[in-house]
C-alpha cells in the first residue's frame, strides 16, 4: 500500500513538473503596459492630493450655507469694512432730528427728566 502510494506520488510529481515547466515567456509589452497603468494611476493619485485643499474649501462653503449665503456674507463683510474705513459724519443730520443745532448744546451732565432731583429728596 505504501509502495503504491509512493509510486502514485512520484507519477503525479512528473505531471506537476510538466505543468510548471511549459509556462510561456512573459512578453515585454505586458510589463510595459503594467507600468504604464501604474503611471496613470499615479497621476490620478497626484490629482486627488492636490484637490484635497479644494475639497476642504468646498466643505467650508457648504457649512456657510452654500454659494448664495457665502456671497451675501462676503458682501456684508465688504460693506462693513467700507463703513468702518470711510464712515460719513452723521452728527448734523441726527442733530436736526432732535431739533438741535449741534450736539454741543446737549448737556449730558445735567438732570435727565429730573430723576436726579427725585433721588436728592430720598
Amino acid at each position: 500500500m505504501v509502495k503504491n502510494k509512493r509510486n502514485s506520488k512520484d507519477n503525479l510529481s512528473i505531471f506537476f513538473e510538466a505543468g510548471k515547466s511549459l509556462t510561456p515567456e512573459i512578453h515585454p509589452d505586458l510589463k510595459v503596459r503594467i507600468l504604464m497603468d501604474a503611471d496613470s494611476v499615479h497621476g490620478a493619485l497626484d490629482i486627488l492630493k492636490s484637490r484635497s485643499w479644494l475639497d476642504h474649501a468646498l466643505d467650508c462653503l457648504k457649512e456657510l450655507g452654500g454659494f448664495p449665503s457665502a456671497v451675501g456674507f462676503a458682501a456684508s463683510l465688504a460693506v462693513g469694512v467700507c463703513i468702518g474705513l470711510y464712515s460719513p459724519d452723521w452728527s448734523e443730520p441726527l442733530a436736526s432730528v432732535f431739533q438741535l443745532d449741534t450736539f454741543d448744546e446737549v448737556d449730558f451732565t445735567g438732570s435727565f427728566f429730573e430723576i436726579n432731583e427725585i433721588f436728592e429728596d430720598i
Binding site: 505531471f15 506537476f16 515547466s21 511549459l22 510561456p24 515567456e25
Partner: peptide, 30 residues
C-alpha cells in the same frame, strides 16, 4: 500550446519536450 512561446531550454531534446507537453495536457485535462 503551439502558439505559446516555448521556454528556451537547450538541455532538452525535441522528444522530451513533446512528452512534457503531453503530460501537461493530460494534467490540465484531468
Amino acid at each position: 500550446l503551439g502558439n505559446a512561446q516555448e521556454p528556451i531550454d537547450g538541455t532538452q531534446s525535441a522528444p522530451d519536450k513533446i512528452d512534457e507537453q503531453y503530460r501537461q495536457k493530460a494534467l490540465y485535462d484531468a
